[in-house]
Design a protein around this nucleic acid. Structure first.
Lengths: 232, 232
DNA sequence: GCAAAAGTGTTGTGTATACACCCATGG
DNA sequence: CCATGGGTGTATACACAACACTTTTGC
């Protein structure tokens, strides 16, 4: 536990306690997707043990760009959405790390895409991994579920056009329980960010479904503030 | 795209650029209070220029404890509430810094307490400061306002007992606009986290006000998830 | 014609808003 | 008795939950 941290070129803040050491700085990305109605996340297979995609920020770059770069380098995937979650200091593998956790969403593909050097794992059956990674994943899941309710984040788990049924399935996969079809449709249509494409999808011996696209012209911040706290 | 994934036997993050430097790691705290019906924040006077209270994390400590320690060291104040906001990488004063921003709330005192080495500044009249500090402050304010609506965060800006009027004034100071008295009282009383103390406050030639205390027995997480996303 | 998913409405219940007057006290 | 802030209720509109049947298509 008392591993001396290798020193790094001095670049110190005035208030930094003299003799202080720098932590290792790590970005870790919890990348979710929905495959066949199941919420899954991308893990790297690292000599038999699984871990989150991770890496160090590059000097003089923005953390968000770093996260995108690291994710792509580790998984070969390009995310649809990336959001910083939380930063925590941990004691891990004998060193002191500061970890910046990110939540990412990738496209839900019918045939699950291969993740280079790893794979998708259903959240209901995660392989063993470090305590820290597990914590980060749990928190990411709480945040993702909460955000479904007051943001349009779910659209980043879907291709450009989709049916209402597919949209509902994404919600159900993430939340982990069923939703009422009529109420769901009424709610999302009333929200006003869906636009009919006119096209339909025929995929079986049943009535074809209307295809929708996400109408970007809305203010995502409006969802963050309750009605009564906004206007005058 | 063809990045070979190196092995990680040495515990280094595989994607860490070899020879990369570590950024300067800084914690900065945006500490708010309400003084005389005005939202104010604590700034350190640093040779004529103002800045946020800041400092480096101590090795092997949690970031939250670090933030508390730094805040106390810089201002002499003890906060009522402290919450991590965001982490950002910036180019500042010729170096590369990673800044972990915190939102803090301190007690609203009738006579504004002196901040060691600095002072309280109304958010409507902030002195000049760095671009980065300004950004962090703006974001903290957005978050604080949003959180008023779905958490009980406002109670951390009040002493242990308070009148409904005082509570309303805190909301109005933070939000920056007036609220309807009857609706406000009905809402906070219906929320069920207020408890009458029985005592009254007499402070003028008018009817004395009932004093309330904050009833802690509630689940703060319940506020984060919309009703329809919770149960089954 | 039947299986399979798409689509559609109403009713009750709770919650937010707008709005104006009486009450208790100190001086 | 009056000035000051404390305290109260009602009517209306909107949002959410519960709940079941008809429509369109492929085979």
């Amino acid at each position: 536990m008392k591993t001396p941290i290798p020193t790094v070129a001095d670049n110190r803040s005035p208030d930094r306690p003299a003799g202080g050491t720098s932590p290792r700085l790590d970005l870790r990305i919890v990348l979710f997707t929905v495959v066949d109605g199941t919420l899954a996340l991308a893990l790297i297979d690292d000599e038999g043990r699984s871990r989150l995609p991770q890496g160090a920020p590059a000097p003089h770059d923005s953390l968000d760009r770093d996260a995108r770069r690291i994710l792509h380098a580790e998984t070969g995937l390009t995310e649809q959405y990336l959001e910083q979650l939380y930063t925590l200091g941990v004691e891990e593998s004998g060193g002191w790390s500061v970890i910046v956790a990110y939540l990412g969403l990738a496209l839900s593909e019918r045939r699950s895409p291969v993740v280079a050097g790893g794979g998708w794992h259903a959240i209901s059956a995660l392989p063993p991994m470090s305590e820290t990674d597990r914590m980060v994943i749990d928190y990411a899941l709480v945040r993702l579920r909460a955000k479904l309710g007051y943001t349009t984040i779910a659209f980043h788990l879907l291709p450009p056009t989709f049916t209402l049924r597919e949209l509902q399935q994404v919600y159900e996969s993430v939340l982990g329980h069923a939703l009422d079809k009529r109420n769901f449709r009424r709610r999302v249509l009333a929200a006003g960010f869906l636009e009919e494409t006119g096209a339909r999808r025929r995929d079986g011996s049943h009535r074809p479904a209307q295809l929708y696209r996400f109408e970007a012209a809305h203010d995502p911040n409006a969802y963050l503030t309750p009605t009564w706290a906004r206007g005058e």
